[in-house]
């Protein structure tokens, strides 16, 4: 069984790797870690304690901590949706921690409710596969590379620090891609 210490160690390691901090309020942090532990026990994976999970891994993948929405939320609001990961200025109490609006698309949230998820499943079975591909490319995600070590990442904004060589965000540059059908 996972212990609170393990959950905490994991979160600390991830925060360190990506240049984030954990919630500075010990009670707040403890509550979140307990929530993550509880979700890991009942669903088999640590889904976000502040979101209703479906219990189906395929539907919950985007809200397994650290969730897909953490990076843009910390950049824009100073914290992720549940408040586990925060930006340096929030950690140092220079900026107040405020509730973060939900960024997860409504249609994904709906999959946590059974009657809806059955409909979604039926739709997915008939929908052409390419739809998912289109969605990925029309997003705001870009390719970024670390000018110091060459690490490449595909996300909206570059990370706060390079997870490999610890270079600062400023050292990341966008990789411009162009598709030319005529060779």
């Amino acid at each position: 069984m996972t212990t609170i210490e393990e959950v905490k160690r994991r979160a600390e390691a991830d925060a360190k790797t990506f240049g984030y901090y954990l919630n500075p309020d010990p009670n707040f942090l403890q509550g979140l870690l307990e929530g993550l532990k509880r979700n890991e026990e009942r669903y088999g994976y640590p889904s976000c304690p502040c979101r209703l999970a479906s219990g189906n891994l395929d539907y919950d993948r985007d809200i397994i901590c650290p969730c897909d929405y953490r990076d843009p939320d910390v950049a824009q609001f100073g914290a992720c949706y549940c408040g586990l990961y925060v930006r340096k200025d929030v950690y140092e109490h220079k900026t107040e921690l405020a509730p973060v609006p939900e960024r997860r698309p409504a249609e994904k949230q709906m999959r946590s409710y059974q009657s809806v998820s059955t409909e979604v499943e039926a739709k997915a079975a008939t929908a052409p596969e390419r739809e998912e591909l289109v969605q990925i490319t029309v997003g705001k995600k870009k390719l970024w590379y670390c000018k110091q070590c060459g690490y490449v990442v595909f996300r909206e904004d570059p990370p706060y620090i390079c997870p490999v060589c610890k270079a600062k965000r400023e050292l990341f540059a966008e990789i411009k891609t162009k598709v030319d059908f005529f060779g």
Binding site: G35, R38, P49, C50, C82, P99
Partner: peptide, 9 residues
């Protein structure tokens, strides 16, 4: 609320 959510608490 959610039983695991700190904002709910």
């Amino acid at each position: 609320a959610l039983s695991t959510c700190v904002w709910c608490k």
